[in-house]
Computed example of a mutant assay.
Amino acid sequence: MAGRDGLVTARVWRRVVLITLDGVGVGGQPDAADFGDQEASTLPHVAERCGGLCLPTLERLGLGRIVPVSGVPAVAAPRGLYGRMLERARGKDTTSGHWELAGLVQDEPFSTYPQGFPEAVIDAFATIAGVAPLGNIAASGTEILQLLGEEHLRSGRPIVYTSVDSVFQIAAHEQVLPRESLYALCEKMRRVLDPYHVGRVIARPFVGTAAGNFERTAGRRDFAMPPPADTLLDRMEQQGLTVYGVGKIRDIFAGKGITRSVKSSSNSDGMAKTRKALGEVDRGLIFTNLVDFDMLYGHRLDVRGFGRALEEFDAWLAGFLPALEPGDLLVITADHGCDPTTPGTDHTRESVPLLVWHSGLKRGGSLGIRRSFADVAATLADMFGVRVETGSSFADQLG
């Protein structure tokens, strides 16, 4: 099969499973200090604080050779290809990370509003919602419910909040503003915020009766800006290949280039649906986001929960690998960091792990430090005979 720039891949590839461990960074990028993240190193710090992690499957693939991870030795003969990747885009958010994995490097960062959104945006919200919002501050999702949840129940006013990331988040109790009404409000605000270059509008439904027991539900939905140019996903779709999104992948790409998708309510649900997708995709890409690392543990500074989630993924992976057939490729990576051991609750500017495996791989080895997440897109483009304009392919190292 001829790939980009004349590269010939002898193997006939059938499917790629690309799993993004949301927020599982492996150490600050060279420019991390510009973001205040010079001390961030999500996976190593979580492992250290947990007294070591038991990740035998990831260990065999070569995880311990990427960075030192307590409890995960650097095996002499890893079964997989391993490395780490730097993000070229000047950001540390979900959207820019995933877009770059798909070959679209964002030259202009999304706008952020850590001091709150402009008056014109809030006025537009009030006109659409029929009531002025509460909040309009930067806060974590759990903090904002403790701070304003009870006032929301009394007044019926939705809660608007943000973070250092480019997000406009709307929280509402499901008995005050039903999910579908919340989603409709988010869709309208998505159009309002496009000129402000805000990456995502996020619906955050919650339940509970008082500040001590408010909980966000699985009804979260992201309304992202559509990618401004075609990505690998579009090119694959144009060639009649399946692009199957699991979790929030469809939301991240605003549906562009996605031929089929399923939502997930948790990591375990996303893993189960990834396994199920093997029986539904004949040729193409299964693109999965496992969000709990970031949403439930990184942002909430839950180190132990983060560690347990990593071990649960590793145990699932041990049973998943045998389900992959000849012609299937597995790629495991992340989109940014979310170090629960450093100050603050936001994403961290980190390099991300890169683990690659297929059943015909004769020997593992290093993929080095990749200069862009887009190297993943370039590699998949070579495998499937489509074209992307960014990234450096490592398809010739797949064996």
Rank of each mutant, 00 (worst) to 15 (best):
G27S: 03
L101D: 07
G298M: 05
T162R: 00
A129N: 06
P158Y: 01
A2K: 15
P73M: 02
Y161P: 01
V164C: 11
G6Y: 04
V17M: 02
Q238M: 10
P114S: 06
M1T: 15
H336S: 12
K188N: 06
D346A: 08
L278R: 01
Q29V: 05
V303F: 00
V303E: 01
E59G: 13
G364K: 03
S163K: 11
W316G: 01
H358A: 10
V121G: 14
P226C: 01
G62V: 03
V243F: 04
I332P: 08
Q239M: 14
P158A: 03
L61I: 05
L317D: 02
L81I: 04
H299Q: 12
G360I: 03
T112M: 11
R157T: 09
A172H: 12
E108G: 08
Q169E: 14
F214G: 03
S266L: 00
G327F: 13
A171E: 11
N267I: 00
G391T: 05
R387D: 09
R14G: 08
P118L: 14
P228L: 12
T142Q: 12
L185E: 09
V281A: 15
R260M: 07
L354F: 00
P227E: 01
L147H: 14
N136Y: 09
M236S: 11
I159Q: 10
V131C: 14
T348N: 13
L147P: 05
F206P: 06
L329M: 13
F287H: 09
V16I: 05
N213L: 10
K263L: 10
R370K: 14
V388A: 10
C186F: 03
V376Q: 11
C50E: 09
W13E: 07
L81S: 08
D339L: 10
T217M: 04
G27I: 00
I369V: 15
V17R: 02
I332N: 06
H98L: 12
A272M: 13
G208Y: 07
A224S: 14
K248I: 01
E48T: 13
M271F: 12
S351L: 04
G327Q: 11
M271H: 12
G71H: 03
V75C: 03
G62D: 10
F394V: 05
L134E: 06
G279Y: 08
D292T: 00
F253T: 11
L310G: 00
N289T: 04
